[in-house]
Design a protein around this nucleic acid. Sequence first.
DNA 1: CAGTATCCTGTTAGATACTG
DNA 2: CAGTATCTAACAGGATACTG
Lengths: 111, 111
Amino acid sequence: MKKQGYTCGLDAAVDVVGGKWKALILWALHYAPLRFGELKRSVPGISEKMLIQQLREMETYGLVHREVHHQVPPKVEYSLTEFGHSLNTALIPLGDWGEKHMRTIEAIPRG
Amino acid sequence: MKKQGYTCGLDAAVDVVGGKWKALILWALHYAPLRFGELKRSVPGISEKMLIQQLREMETYGLVHREVHHQVPPKVEYSLTEFGHSLNTALIPLGDWGEKHMRTIEAIPRG
DNA sequence: CAGTATCCTGTTAGATACTG
DNA sequence: CAGTATCTAACAGGATACTG
């Protein structure tokens, strides 16, 4: 979330879902609501700091809903809103594309 | 292009098209091949440095083709490959989503 | 369990000036 | 026209330790 005055829809969408983690978190929540710890295990490699940071942003975007259950031990569940689901749906073709070309992508020399 | 061993297709796709500019450059080239200067005008706000840098990466990914016409003054045309077109197609729903929700997105308080 | 708080590093990106 | 080169600021992200 950095700009105003987007030049096209893709510009706006990339601004919302951009960065290393948001699309993956969205994807993980597609199937069912998850607790913080479950989510962490569902997104391999993410640190607790990045996870909570991205979740907070996605909450302010209205993509994710945070539900606190006052128990001991604490239980917090994250789920997609309708808005979040609509974004996830829009990401499906991109995910399919990536899956289809994963081998090609991995074979590209890094640098 | 940073990792190997993607966990899902979206992971791989975000790695290829991620960052601030690549999706926009891809989008601009969707309609027709463009020269460097035309491309710069088509992607408002991009610096020459970022444009050439992103184009080079996209060339190594095989998304973009660079055609040099040996003339004075020089003329270099950039176009999408078939691979680039396939990625662009996969981005259409995301672009539509962004367009549809642009007002909502702009209204979110920045942080 | 579900976070916070700090510190630290590498990358991204902007500004500016210059070239074949 | 189509780039290169250099410098610097900003930010994303990682490591580690601590808390209600």
